[in-house]
């Protein structure tokens, strides 16, 4: 579904991503992790077309992402911080988005998260008056709303309360069962290990490891993602 070949990205002269080669397919749920400044957000921005790669090719469903915007139809994105137009209320935002997404037929919206996160209770409120967590809920509901086959979630659980957090995780797991591709970044590894079946670890713009959760588990004989990461990092240091 996503094929990244030899991606390199520089900001001014600093290299933020180098020699990134990744292939992700349906049914995978990727935990995209790495320390601050390792290039996770840049990678996501490139996938969304917000940043332009310097070299390399990226294909989403066999479409070269530098040619045309249609590939983004299959992507749902939940940003880390969202600032919505303050004067709109939640309902109006969704209706605006529906108008912008004429490619999605009228009955094909997925409002389950909208309902489950009890957004209807505050849908008349202006977006400018919502709390950070509520905005995050709106943002999550919006990401799933148009039934995308690829979901990109940037720190989805950071501002959510425990109940909403669980609702979102259930939603993500059902999306995996529905054969979608999910890419999640987070620093809360305990959240990630419940929803991810694949780990990509970025460090200083390079892929340190990229493997299924199961294989990492047997390789490191650790149980939690946190410990697996630590053990793998120690192995790397010993190799170096």
């Amino acid at each position: 579904m996503i094929d990244i070949q030899n991606l390199q990205k520089y900001y001014s002269r600093q290299c933020v991503l180098s020699e990134v080669n990744l292939t992700y397919t349906r049914g995978q749920s990727i935990a995209l992790i790495g320390p601050n400044g390792s290039g996770k957000t840049t990678l996501i921005k490139i996938l969304l077309g917000l940043a332009i790669p310097d070299t390399g090719n990226i294909y989403v469903n066999q479409n070269d992402i530098t040619k045309g915007h249609e590939y983004r139809r299959s992507i749902g994105y939940m940003p880390q911080i969202t600032r919505f137009p303050e004067q709109l209320n939640v309902k109006q935002l969704f209706s605006l988005m529906r108008q912008l997404r004429t490619d999605v037929p009228g009955n094909n919206y997925d409002a389950s998260l909208y309902e489950e996160l009890s957004i209807p209770t505050f849908e008349e409120k202006r977006l400018g008056t919502l709390s950070g967590g509520m905005k995050q809920q709106v943002s999550a509901a919006l990401a799933f709303y148009f039934n995308p086959s690829i979901l990109i979630l940037d720190e989805p659980t950071a501002a959510l309360d425990p109940v909403s957090n669980e609702i979102l995780k259930v939603k993500i797991r059902s999306a995996i069962d529905n054969n979608k591709l999910i890419i999640t970044t987070s620093h809360i590894l305990s959240d990630l290990e419940e929803i991810a079946n694949h780990v990509t670890y970025l460090m200083e713009g390079k892929i340190l490891f990229n493997d299924t959760m199961d294989r990492l588990r047997t390789e490191t004989s650790e149980n939690t993602l946190n410990k697996m990461v630590v053990s793998l990092l120690q192995q790397e240091i010993q190799h170096a």
Partner: peptide
């Protein structure tokens, strides 16, 4: 309005 533009840019 940059964040809102991001949201729009992530759409097709």
């Amino acid at each position: 309005s940059q964040e809102f533009l991001f949201l729009l840019l992530a759409q097709p």
